[in-house]
């Protein structure tokens, strides 16, 4: 987390000099301390298994591709048949167990245009879809399959 803040500082200050680095070290140390002690965050994103990082990177690449595809679909809907869509609200159960993976799944669903996660209660998710075909197979989406694989793998905590 310290490293993350330091990189952010370097990026925002726009140069690497002695002065900037020293101030950056001081500021990121203070902010890291604040996040740990006061806000109670404890991140180990960069310390994880390299296979985990690779899986995350692949997941996000897949997410971006799906977002672009869904964006195109919804854009076509805007032009072709805005009055004849069949919006649905779908309750479904997700087999994901940890809150972190559930949050990732619902964030992914919301980020892809055409589907919005409305409610999450326990292992049930309520999803609003713009048109009926967009909601097909939502209870076993590619995001969920990938997340399940990540959850089951031994290196994911």
């Amino acid at each position: 987390m310290f490293l993350l803040f330091f990189l952010l500082w370097l990026l925002l200050s726009g140069g690497v000099s002695m002065h900037i680095c020293l101030w950056g070290l001081a500021v990121s140390a203070v902010i890291t301390w604040f996040c740990r002690r006061v806000l109670g965050y404890d991140w180990h994103i960069l310390l994880g298994d390299p296979r985990k990082l690779w899986a995350m990177a692949r997941y996000f690449a897949h997410l971006v591709a799906e977002m672009l595809k869904a964006g195109m679909t919804v854009m076509r809907l805007v032009y072709t048949k805005p009055k004849h869509i069949e919006p649905r609200l779908i309750w479904f159960r997700t087999p994901l167990r940890t809150d972190r993976h559930k949050a990732l799944l619902s964030d992914s669903i919301t980020l892809t245009a055409g589907t919005i996660t409305v409610r999450a209660e326990g292992d049930r998710l309520l999803v609003h879809t713009l048109d009926a075909p967009l909601g097909e197979g939502i209870e076993n989406s590619s995001f969920q399959q990938r997340l399940m694989k990540m959850e089951e793998s031994p290196w994911s905590k």
């Binding site: 805005p82 980020l111 245009a113 919005i116």
Partner: peptide, 18 residues
């Protein structure tokens, strides 16, 4: 062009992502 809040949000989401 969409006529309901939840449908309109999808249109806005297109701008947000794509």
């Amino acid at each position: 062009r969409f006529d309901y809040v939840l449908n309109r949000m999808h249109a806005a989401a297109v701008g947000d992502s794509l």
